[in-house]
Design a binder for these strands. Sequence first.
DNA 1: TAAATTAGCTTACAACTGTAAGCTCAAAAT
DNA 2: ATTTTGAGCTTACAGTTGTAAGCTAATTTA
Lengths: 201, 201
Amino acid sequence: MGVRAQQKEKTRRALVDAAFNQLSAERSFSSLSLREVAREAGIAPTSFYRHFKDMDELGLTMVDEGGLTLRQLMRKGRQRAASGGSVIRTSAETFMEVLDSNPNVFRILLHERSGTTPAFRAAVAREIRHFIAELAHYIEQQADRPSDAAWAQAEALVTLVFHSGAEALDLKSSQRKPLTERLVLQLRMVVKGAEGLANRY
Amino acid sequence: MGVRAQQKEKTRRALVDAAFNQLSAERSFSSLSLREVAREAGIAPTSFYRHFKDMDELGLTMVDEGGLTLRQLMRKGRQRAASGGSVIRTSAETFMEVLDSNPNVFRILLHERSGTTPAFRAAVAREIRHFIAELAHYIEQQADRPSDAAWAQAEALVTLVFHSGAEALDLKSSQRKPLTERLVLQLRMVVKGAEGLANRY
DNA sequence: TAAATTAGCTTACAACTGTAAGCTCAAAAT
DNA sequence: ATTTTGAGCTTACAGTTGTAAGCTAATTTA
């Protein structure tokens, strides 16, 4: 890669990072202006267009990148569970740790899931579907369940995890223990109930 | 009430209604400007301040009003269930009907739940807590469950219902049947699982 | 070596925002 | 009958936004 392409890539990253860094509980992606992001990245507003067609394109890049990051981290967590310990508990705790270290990655997914841009909602939905698919696959194999039931179960589990994640974002990490316990209990309900329904019919 | 107070109330309603009407899948409350709302309500921008301190105050009014409306509709639905039929199925179907007739009432709750204004998030959380409390109370009585387990269960149920509601918003009402069926299945998992966990210990 | 490409810049503009100041005039209070 | 109140208006201003036009200078290509 030439000197020029290298510098361009560096600036592009600066833009993505600038946008991620400006996210917070009080600041969503859609509330960021092109000029703010450019300012934070240290370039002129109009130079932004050398990298992205518009803010939407930047945002979609972030959603994709965020979804990938999150899945990688969760996969690492599942490896930890494989080497001993409850899958449910380990997964719940892993997720909370991810929140702690990458809050803004989760924030953009959470917020844009119910955002106003159809393209964003679709992108987030796709990322979440990846989550569900991985989990549904695991359930199908592990519990030998028909695939539609496995999907419904996986979706319920992911929904509950995301919801607790959203609540956890508003708390200091020291306050998250009871929330995690309640989440574990809710996940157990779903798993136990899915077993019950599968065995009865 | 005097003529004057009557007219004022009328304009206030016009503002609230204007704001509700401007909501859509592509337009969240926080993306509305004061001037837009005033325009739609047929008053001058500066006259807005005769009724609300700022847009946040209008938004909080809408959240309160929306939460109330939603709970009233759901209560009506529960009465229908009392006179025969599965509670789970009837509740799920009622919720979908509410979505159909009052999409924007649900939209503001859904969107501001993960929005950027702390006051909004708190207000929505409070409304949802009302939902959960009503349901937890029902479960405690009906199934004689300890109150913390009943709460966790109720929260899980409400979480799943809201999530399906969010997905349903993006669909035409004719496309919502399978989604409702999946929701019913997920709710059954939770109920069944909660039973299982309660009986085992 | 000469020409072409391009990342980033400066300047500029029209559109929109929230809101301050102050007027009008009908209803309410005295 | 007179005064006070207040909902709604017009005008005005400063700030921010996205983005168009065109320049510069350094890398890349021919």
